[in-house]
Design a protein around this nucleic acid. Structure first.
Lengths: 347, 347
DNA sequence: TTGAAAGCGCTAACAG
DNA sequence: CTGTTAGCGCTTTCAA
């Protein structure tokens, strides 16, 4: 066996090489690189070390570092699909940006919804010693994370567990629905139709609740028949709108569960020879950019705070990681984020 | 210093604990876990080891493993933006799926286009000892990767360097343009307008070239004025279409650079009281699902092979990693992937 | 067929 | 203020 003559032709420089070049011990190099205040290394020595690092193009080995320090500065990001609805990737974007800003990287796994895979995915992250895990969904819903997720800090993104065992961040659907409808009310509308998702997902339930709150705040009675349901796609919006406009006393404004349904509402209204917003106002939800901004007239809608949720999740996760176990909140925080109104021209 | 009484209350079981429980040496456990054929461990011993692994819930530490073996089963995925155009996340999806299928995970960084950040990003990946790097863009274009990307296997996804120094996979824009236009020609159209991007990106150049090839193949002369340019957004498509239809001899079909421009073409045609596809056929490009499938009539378009590019890139990268340095192709492969035609109702 | 032992590159007592 | 040293958990050579 040929022993590498140290310092001669080794491929990548090691911390020892830096030490030798700087004329100090490896420890000193480590202290300088990690900026350990405790052991006051004189500025001059520090500079020598940095110069050596520079000269050799030294790059620390994160595996060795992590093995020693139990910190990898890597977070796991688990999701069922990377993007069911394309705009939802902003969740990932927000998470990645904040992680990066804090010197961490995201290790990505998407499992396609299979529960067994989810467990495996988390195992792979655990093996790689991630500091914590973000468990994200691409639309707001309850989830059932595998038991091995209990083994380290974790936060839920755009989802929650029924028992609230993990910290979680989701959009404030109720406030969003309320804001949307109050905007319509402010514009003078009193007959407001709701093209609702036939699927009772949290978003649908919450937005309807918000609508009711808004009406109540304005003293407008809630009328059941002004809620028409359909699938949350254009065809569903089309049908719901047709049903709404066929009412003896049709609405002057239609609040749609989402932008895709709003697109259907646009089509229905056009077929009815009705003008938006003059004859009927339309309000969407989701701010799905390629739809909302591009159709005519541009759609007024509520934006989902995807990016903000992403950064909140990482922020909170990093805080959790810093905290010693004992300090961790016994009651994991359930955070709601507001949905901003995007004013365009359909109301 | 209190030495942990081995085997008693250590938090996570180590390989040694497994060995002890199975009544074998740590080496044997390692051999069994890594399925080392060379040292014929009798099936019976193997079973004892696996049973011990199971019982203790043992999970190997990937950092230690990587430190020793110089293989982390982790790939870096660098991109300027996670998604400029939302549908392009399928690139990431395709990459992640194939990586997962091969026991690797993606370490994600997006740098927002800053060149210095790109260098840093790659440094962070290098520190973490990734096995290789995927460098991706969200639309087809030339790139200038930082020099430190030479230090390990890397492949370019949806982009290329002018010197072709890295393997690269991009859509076959020329063939795509040709396929689209031949489809129109097959439907009997002979005056075919092109609502072209005013920005001469590779996609625009390639698709125009494809159009010319198709016309040539059918003996139809190329007519300059049938190419009208505009920004690659609905407004640009609107203008281009208006220009096209204002021609003394207007086209019977319009091939649009992308689906967003096609949306603009739809609006223009509607304003002109022209019916799609009866009066004028419209062909898009990109198959941007939320637009293409949802508008009426549904748009016939060419799909970008995002997911396929993603998996090709990972497949190729893994091959590169397996290969010993010497065997690596001196001429990095530049791979083109076909764009499938998506037939809907606008032609 | 199995085990002992030597590191992989780094951190951090502890001692000087 | 700096250096010596003992591991972190694993792979793998070499010997038994």
């Amino acid at each position: 066996m040929v022993k590498q003559v140290s310092g001669s032709k080794s491929k990548r420089p090691l911390m020892n090489d830096v030490a030798r070049l700087a004329g100090v011990s490896q420890t000193t190099v480590s202290f300088v690189l990690n900026n350990v205040e405790a052991s006051n290394i004189p500025p001059e020595t520090q500079e020598r070390v940095w110069a050596a690092v520079e000269e050799l193009g030294y790059r620390p080995n994160a595996l060795a570092r992590g093995l020693r320090s139990n910190r990898t500065h890597t977070l796991g990001f688990v999701t069922d699909r990377i993007a069911t609805t394309p705009y939802a990737v902003r969740i990932l974007e927000g998470a990645q940006e904040l992680a990066w800003a804090n010197g961490s990287l995201l290790l990505l796994v998407s499992t396609g919804g299979d529960q067994r895979l989810k467990r495996q995915a988390i195992d792979m992250l655990l093996e790689r010693q991630v500091d914590g895990i973000i468990y994200a969904t691409m639309y707001h819903r309850p989830v059932y994370p595998p038991p091995n997720m209990q083994e380290l800090p974790a936060v839920l993104l755009d989802c929650y567990t029924k028992d609230r065992a993990f910290p979680s961040v989701v959009p404030d659907e109720v406030l969003g629905g309320r804001t949307a409808v109050e905007y319509l009310l402010n514009k003078g509308h009193r007959r407001i139709g709701f093209a609702q998702d036939s699927d009772p997902v949290p978003a649908a339930v919450g937005r309807l609740e918000g609508l009711k709150q808004a009406l109540a705040a304005y003293g407008v009675p809630f009328d059941d028949e002004l809620v028409q349901t359909g699938q949350s796609i254009p065809a569903g919006g089309y049908q719901a709108t047709m049903a709404l406009m066929g009412l003896p006393n049709p609405p002057t404004a239609i609040f749609c569960y989402n932008d895709r349904m709003a697109l259907g509402a646009y089509n229905a209204l056009r077929d009815l020879n009705l003008t938006i917003p003059d004859d009927v106002a339309v309000m969407g939800f989701d701010n799905q950019e390629l739809i909302a901004a591009d159709i005519s007239p541009p759609l007024t809608t509520m934006a989902l705070p995807h990016k903000e949720m992403g950064s909140w999740a990482v922020r909170h996760l990093l805080d959790l990681i810093e905290q010693p176990d004992e300090t961790r909140h016994s009651q994991p925080v359930q955070h709601l984020i507001e949905c901003p109104l995007i004013e365009r021209a359909s109301v």
